Computed example of a mutant assay.
Amino acid sequence: MRAADWAIAELVQSAARSTASEHGSAERAWTAALSAILLARHLEHPVDLLRVLEMIVVGALDRPRADIRSALDPDNGLHAFALLLELENAGTSEARLVHALVASGSGRAVPVTDRFLGRFLDAMSDEASLNAAG
């Protein structure tokens, strides 16, 4: 693993450790957002970082799509609704990245095709290796 892989993984791990052991949706979203910001420029296939961050935040609302849509003004409601549909269908690189980051924060693994992201997720799940490298 390259030094950049370890550095990003170590930073996110230390941030995750500083939150409570039982992560709420806000803490998971914060960790996923931090990971996305730090990883985006290293991924093999570019992603729209703003869209990724929007999906992370809207996905953390943990409410039904229709409730979110109706609670917001028409423009923002439709935008949030579309983000949640995109996230649910996981048909874009952005949605797949969000799924991978959120799953890793919950201790679950999802298959990824991006080598850099895969190494990062492996490093995140292997905290002992991170501690030994740091």
Rank of each mutant, 00 (worst) to 15 (best):
A3I: 10
W6Q: 11
W6Y: 14
A7S: 11
I8R: 07
I8Q: 02
L11G: 10
V12C: 00
V12F: 01
A16L: 05
R17M: 06
S18N: 09
S21C: 12
S21D: 14
E22Y: 06
E22P: 10
G24V: 01
G24P: 00
A26M: 15
E27I: 06
R28V: 10
A29S: 02
A29M: 03
W30M: 12
W30F: 10
A32L: 03
A33H: 03
L34S: 06
S35L: 04
S35C: 01
L39V: 07
L39N: 05
R41S: 12
H42M: 01
L43Y: 05
E44G: 09
E44C: 05
V47Q: 06
L50F: 12
V52Q: 00
V52W: 01
V52E: 01
L53C: 03
G59A: 05
R63I: 08
P64H: 06
P64W: 08
R65G: 09
A66P: 12
R69V: 01
R69Q: 07
R69I: 01
S70P: 05
D73E: 13
P74D: 00
P74Y: 06
D75V: 12
L78P: 14
A82Y: 08
L83R: 02
L83T: 03
L87V: 02
E88V: 01
S93V: 08
E94N: 01
A100G: 05
L101H: 09
A103L: 05
A103G: 07
S104W: 09
S104I: 05
S106D: 08
S106N: 14
G107A: 07
G107E: 03
R108A: 09
R108P: 09
R108L: 08
V110A: 02
V110L: 03
V112R: 00
T113V: 15
T113E: 14
D114L: 00
D114P: 00
R115L: 07
R115Q: 12
R119T: 08
L121H: 03
A123V: 07
M124F: 13
S125E: 08
A132E: 10
A133F: 12
